[in-house]
Amino acid sequence: MRKGFDWAAYVRGFHDAAPGVTEAVLSRTLAGGHTPYRWLARAVSPRAQLIVDLACGSGAMSRELALPGRTVLGVDLAESELRLASERSEGPWVCADGLALPLADASVDAVVSSMGAVVIQPAHALFTEVGRVLRPGGVFAFTAPTVLPLHPRDLVTSLGVVGRLRSLPRFPGPTEITGYKDALIGTGLRKVEDARERYHFEVATLQDAEVIVSALYLPTTSARRRAAAVEWLVDRTAKEGPVRISLAMRRFLVLKQPVATRGPEL
């Protein structure tokens, strides 16, 4: 990736061109019958009444968190995603920057973000803003893609796709906790969980192959290389039946400590 790449423009163009594509993949990506959305929702207390779904996209995470008497505020910069979200549920939805939330200090019980922390950068500014709006004792739960705990056999298909793309999916921010460790310092947030889970997306048709490839952030990959990856997946399904693509995810949970008991963030 060349220095000075305009990630903000890329991400904006990606979601304007294909709103809902992330949900189309993650809603069908399963581990033991649950999706990454369900896994992330389990990190939030049922007592949380006001929750911010940061980088909410088409609203899948907001819908997963919905409970009677609870308000889930979906926030995203992509108007195309928010339009789709509003078609699928009532919201509320707000078009806003995750680094400048239109919320009062210490006003929300929890902030969640499915994949948003690898996009909203810089990380320290993100954690600072989340720490500002969280009440003491509130949590920020977010997921990010990773490599481990994929089994070597899981990598065969992934490597086949990458070989045809001739590039790896990329993100503006880090996907490992080492990339967030220093960013927590001085924010009043402390990491309390770093968990991993392995998920699988099944490719059985041309449409499945197209959606999984189109959901990847591939800023330097040509349309020809993307088509080659889709063609390779379709060829495999024709020869072997449905093909499973494995995706590893990490779930991070950080806590806003009460001021009186606040110690080192890490």
Rank of each mutant, 00 (worst) to 15 (best):
M1F: 09
G4T: 00
F5K: 05
W7G: 02
A9T: 14
H15M: 03
V21L: 05
Y37I: 00
A43I: 10
I51N: 01
A55T: 02
R63Q: 14
G69L: 05
E79L: 10
L82R: 01
R83V: 05
R88S: 12
E90L: 09
A96S: 07
D97W: 03
D97R: 08
P102N: 01
L103R: 02
A104P: 13
V112E: 02
V130P: 01
L134E: 03
T143V: 11
T143Y: 07
P145S: 07
T146Q: 09
V147A: 12
L148H: 10
P149A: 01
L150I: 08
V156Y: 11
V162I: 13
L165I: 03
A183E: 10
A183N: 07
L184I: 11
I185L: 15
G186N: 07
T187H: 03
R198N: 07
L206N: 09
E210Q: 10
E210H: 08
I212H: 04
L216Q: 15
T220A: 14
A228R: 10
E231T: 06
W232I: 04
A238W: 14
K239P: 15
E240Y: 12
P242F: 02
V243S: 01
V254C: 06
L255G: 04
Q257W: 06
V259W: 14
V259F: 14
T261C: 11
T261M: 14
E265H: 04
